[in-house]
Structure formats: C-alpha cells, structure tokens
Design a protein around this nucleic acid. Sequence first.
DNA 1: GGCCAGGCTAGCA
DNA 2: TGCTAGCATGGC
Length: 300
Amino acid sequence: MDSRTQTGRLEIATPADFNFTECLAILGRSDQELLHTINDERITKLLAAENEQVLFEVSHSGRALHIDFPHHTPSEQGKQAARRYVAEWFDLDTDLQPFYAMAASDPVLREVVEKHAGLRLIGLPDLFEALSWAVIGQQINLTFAYTLKRRLIENFGSSLTVAGVDYWAFPSAETIASLQVEQLRSLQFSGRKAEYLIQIAQELASGRLVKEELIGQSEQQVEQQLVAIRGVGPWSAHYVMMKCLRFTSAFPVSDVGLHNALKHQLGLEQKPGIAEIEALAKNWTGWQAYATFYLWRVLL
DNA sequence: GGCCAGGCTAGCA
DNA sequence: TGCTAGCATGGC
C-alpha cells in the first residue's frame, strides 16, 4: 500500500538493485527532449490523463521513488495514473536477477552490465508515442529524430505552463489521426513517414489497435500484428515490444545502435552482421531486450 | 562533400 | 522466399 503524506506525495518501493542515477543518464540524453525535464536528480513530467493534466515530479531516496505534484494536487484518478505511469516507465515490476545471473557469465554483457548495474529499461508506456518514436527514428540520425519529435510535440501536443516553464505531453492519437500529410511534411517529415504516422494514429484512435489487447499475447502474435501496420517493420515491432509492451525477449537485431555498441564493446574492425549477432546473443534468450538496452548505454 | 543515420515498402526474380 | 532500388532529409 502507498504511504501518503498530506501533500499528496506517493511512494513506490524500488527493487534493491535499482539505480536512479543510471536511469537519469538515459532520460537526460537529449537536450531537445520536451516530454520531461531533469533538475537536481528530479524528473518533472506532464501526463495527459483522462480528463486532466497531471504534472508530477519523480525523485528517489532510500528504497523508494517519490512522486510529488508541484502544480496542484490532482484527482485520485490522476494520482493513480501517475503512479502507474512511473511504475511502468522504470519497469519496477521486473525481477532482473535472472538477467544479472546470465550477464555475469556472458562475455559480451559482463562488463557493461556490471558497470551500469541498476539501470532499468526505460519505457514508453504510451503505445502511440512508442510507435511514433519508432517510425520517426527510422533511417535518420537520432539528433534529427529528436528535432522531428520536438516539432511534432510543439505543434500538436498539449502543454502546461507553471512558473514560466512549459511542460509538454505527446500529441494524442486522435489529434494526429485528423491531420493531413502536408501538415507533417511542413515540419520536415518525409511524405512516407507522415503517411505512416497518420495511419498509425487512426489505428489507435479507432480502437483497432489496443495496447491491453496486445499484452498477454505471444511475442510472435504481437509481432505479426504490428508488422501488418504500414510503416512498421521488424525493427519497429521489436522496439515497441521492448519499450512499451515489455517483452523482455524482444530483440531489434537490425538496430544500427546495437551494431555500433557491439563493435565498440568487442573492439571489432567493422560492425557485426546479423548472423554474428545472433550467435553472440545465444545466451540472452528471454532477456534480449535488456541486453540490447544495456548495450545502447555504452553509446551515450 | 560524401557517407551515414535506432528502416520500410514495393517491385522484381 | 530472397534481394534491392528508392525513399527523404539532416548531421557530422
């Protein structure tokens, strides 16, 4: 049960192996990020809940994450929405001991996992945001991807200004579903990506694609459904399964970042091929998503 | 200035 | 089933 103070603070117990600073390193990797701000080891984020905007602040001490509401205390529903979001965001319900046990004897993972122990797979709990970010990131460098995401949010997201600071929430699927391709092209999205995003938004807004219905199905079933969406290939499907649907076995093998991380970590002359990666990943079964995430960490 | 970027689709053999 | 041209643009 949560222990709550009179100011509406929530607490969520964290696992013994949890390292907030490592998580912050990931969350702070782009100075173009509008969806959260980090100050003095505290993260502030705006959540667009059912019928209210919930601005919350996450900090860590002892064995718990603390959630405060610096603007105004939200409804009980809003508070619980923030609580659920944080638990998912930091993947607090996954027991990483089996992963650590595997990594301890894995030649590829041992060093990086030891060095960044306590890092958890930072998620994208909102399915539309996760799919959008996957599509945006396809085949362009991350800096430009962040630029496109920022423009999408500034133009179509929702915001709240507190004490002169703007806080932003990702656009709703409903909003993007009603756009014309040209509106995104003017933000320098390619025509293809504009089409993909609008169609994906329509899938979600219409209720044809529902996160809760995907969770609980087999990895193969989910991959099949995601890949059937125009603009979503194997990489995007596995990225979303990893970051949003929480399949620890999801594995974006074709990921360029993973290739670069492996090259760096193993001191290779060139990036490894897919077959080579699958051989290296032989022992990762069930934990490919965490292995990938920890390897991405070395690129920061 | 040229290669690369957290790929995908559609068309072809 | 497998291969690849074309996409579309910015970063470095």
